[in-house]
Design a protein around this nucleic acid. Sequence first.
DNA 1: AAGTTATCTGCAATCGTTTTTAGCAATTTG
DNA 2: CAAATTGCTAAAAACGATTGCAGATAACTT
Lengths: 350, 350
Amino acid sequence: MSNATISDVAKKVGVSESTVSRYLSGFKVRNSESIRKAIKDLNYRPNIMARNLKSGKTGMVAVIVPDITNPFFAAVVRGAEVAAGDEYMLQLISTGDDPVREEAAIRRLNGRVDGLIYVPAKEDSDAITELEDYAFPVVFVDRVISNLSSFDSVLADNQTGATLATKHLIDHGHSAIAHIAGPSASTPGKGRTEGYFAALKKAKIEKNHDYHVESDFTVLGGYQAMMSLLALKKRPTAVFVGNNLMTIGALKALRESKVNVPNEMAVIGFDDHELSDLVNPPLTVISRDAHLQGALAMSTLLERIRDGYQFPPKQLKVDSNLVIRHSCGSTCLYRKTDTGKRILSSSTSS
Amino acid sequence: MSNATISDVAKKVGVSESTVSRYLSGFKVRNSESIRKAIKDLNYRPNIMARNLKSGKTGMVAVIVPDITNPFFAAVVRGAEVAAGDEYMLQLISTGDDPVREEAAIRRLNGRVDGLIYVPAKEDSDAITELEDYAFPVVFVDRVISNLSSFDSVLADNQTGATLATKHLIDHGHSAIAHIAGPSASTPGKGRTEGYFAALKKAKIEKNHDYHVESDFTVLGGYQAMMSLLALKKRPTAVFVGNNLMTIGALKALRESKVNVPNEMAVIGFDDHELSDLVNPPLTVISRDAHLQGALAMSTLLERIRDGYQFPPKQLKVDSNLVIRHSCGSTCLYRKTDTGKRILSSSTSS
DNA sequence: AAGTTATCTGCAATCGTTTTTAGCAATTTG
DNA sequence: CAAATTGCTAAAAACGATTGCAGATAACTT
């Protein structure tokens, strides 16, 4: 039950604590055999707290996400965990989009972890600026703080993805194309909106400000945004929705309003899902590898923990792909992949 | 940057370390004002490792789930986190259904956490029996180890839920009802199969062993199981699928085989999802409150951490509800709820 | 066999707290 | 006014490991 200490082992064998400690760290020791036995007999496990106190390391990495229930963030976490191997364990903080909880969590992190992978809920939190004072390295995922360029980040190629999405709608003959956007204060919200406008501009379609509605990345937000779009005197014929949750909300609004997809309204979402294939109609989306984003974040973080900031901060980006199903109407413009999904690859990683 | 220690604060104020420590623990202290100031000036934060070493507590609770990417487990984790408040932080381990990783993780937990919320991937792991030797309390969620009754658990009412599901199919006039089951060695797999057979028996429908196919709770497993069901000379007309992932797989198989749901095959799943509403056709499912399961698990765990095992182990169960949509065909037998879902509540919690 | 070097060992200090102990000053009491 | 009580305080001993240092064995030299 209550754990034996290193001194119990030492006593039992008749050597000093330091000898046992050395044995544990892999040094050559005379009575290694009897030490091994004593450790087993006493069921001795080193006290991690004591070890950490001495070493100043914790063997822990924190991951902060707005909501673990969002499959995208879940995949990021999973990717991070896989990349951590068994060198580091994960401390998960899912803040429920609550900046207050988030700040409090960050403050409690100091001294508990060796590093942080951080997907901020809001990008102007006070606690974030404190991050620079903390002793551990931070890697931002998906969202960055504009005035904090001293940290590494792993983003998606939002612009290219959004352009791809919008262009896909244009290629289907649409010109009344709406965009349900995330908060313009957020990296992905801003980037995707930029991509949307860029595609419109390139196709010489003039901006209709009614068609650009800013929402909040939630199901309810997407629902309301879609409703407001449907209430317009001149309805759009197509919509690019800025994330997975809002797409669900938008789809609910469309079904509730008995608007046919894709005939009356073409829909393209951002972020894929196992079920996107099975919804009615199967959803065309921009997808990117969330698992990879998490894994990249973890590996750059581990690098920082190991080597510090002798190299300048990295800004990594992962590809966005267009996954064509049926929610924009059918086309056969694109190549088929072996998975049965028609994919148009987009941007290159840097 | 590098953190100030309590002795730095003490020196600056001109008192002893113990006085600062007492101040921090809320005792009355003469120079409290100047201590407060010194702490702020030096940006002093107590070293958690040292504090933990002394107290023997870690302020951490581990949560082990087979796969954080499964929305059910994500909801459990979220529920647990909310219930933890800011008293405890969460250490997440998502083992990817790999028992080896799981065992390794459990072993590394000792000394790092004050308690464990555990959804085992396999229910016969070696490491699990070691759990009894460990110093921290454990609460099992969703699955229990049969020969380990000394721990608390929070389960779903699998039997009642499965009976409800099967009865729903029977009520629609089906008698050739298949069941794609989870591993019979697992608590939910076993329980749901029992409920399925119980409902058949009550309706005096004789068992057809071809209709009971045991799978593995994965998308692929569900797909293959459905395929084998479709290959039968006498196809079933309805199927009760034992979890969310297998339901996705089964649905894919059905779509690929161009089998119409619900006309040629009625489908009912276990565990609801935000998108269940939007798939084609909207999915009728048994649902239970995963968030609640996580929260209950956390609160019983915190109780154990506080009070130890002076009270006997609790076995908690949460309700299963029938959420009727369209994948079994339409009925109006059931009451409508204000959320627009028609719900038939089932079992009582204990 | 003696001298030199290479290994291994125990002692003691250290990491940054908390907590027990004993002591001192101020206040209250008989 | 002495004695008892109260209210803080500082010093020191934990908590359980790791590590530099110096001494003790052991293993090579010649």
